[in-house]
Design a protein around this nucleic acid. Structure first.
Lengths: 112, 112
DNA sequence: CACCCCTGTCAGACTTTTGTGACACCGGGT
DNA sequence: ACCCGGTGTCACAAAAGTCTGACAGGGGTG
């Protein structure tokens, strides 16, 4: 996922996942340190259900990874961490992404 | 705006503006050719009011520029074009952007 | 037992975004 | 006059995203 120019169908969810102050903060926190969910919620001072939602979006976009660790004593803790990535964001990437967009307005692609 | 690592308050609207298939297509179309609004609407097959909305968001994010040209015969036509930009999108940019985030969840920065 | 910390999900309220049709206005040509 | 194409804005409905409180359960400890 690093360095390659993503398709439109990949780029849109990626950008949507990043276009949020909360998720930016979450990612930044996870970039420095791998933590478990409740601790992260405390650290960022947000409700756990809310954090869950944001984490799911980040996970769906492939930006974070979750791992449910079961400690030797039986208690479960879910550790999450950021996934390194690199996307050069410029007009060229946009043009290429737009060409690989499926779904609705696929019109006006070829004309004469 | 090119190459520099944007602040969080700049990055979020930028990403939000790009996180849309319609706007990706609009930007891609404007990257190759400068056109006027109605022609662009025809080309992309979308309603003008809708295109207007998307253009306003792109313009607000600094990604397109509009110019209302009054032809010698008096009729006005609004030409729009894409503004070149480059933002390296990676974890490091995110971390730096999150540090420069103002507003709500600025908590967990300084305490005790 | 009661208490603590953890995970995970739910319904509901709320706000923002997206999309549509209609309208006003301008000027040129027939 | 009518018709055409262009700009710009409006109210409105529909959809998507955001956020909260409450709930289920698991496990450890006093």
């Amino acid at each position: 996922m690093s360095g390659t120019s993503p398709t439109g169908d990949e780029l849109v969810p990626l950008l949507a996942a990043l276009a949020s102050p909360h998720r930016l903060r979450i990612l930044a926190a996870l970039a420095r340190q791998r933590t478990y969910v409740s601790e992260l919620a405390r650290q960022l001072q947000m409700n756990r259900p809310l954090l869950y939602m944001h984490l799911q979006k980040l996970e769906a976009a492939g930006l974070v990874t979750g791992e449910l660790v079961t400690a030797p004593d039986g208690s479960s803790v879910k550790y999450v961490q950021a996934v390194p990535f690199t996307v050069p964001l410029d007009l060229d990437t946009i043009v290429r992404a737009a060409q690989s967009l499926t779904g609705s307005g696929s019109a006006a692609q070829q004309e004469e």
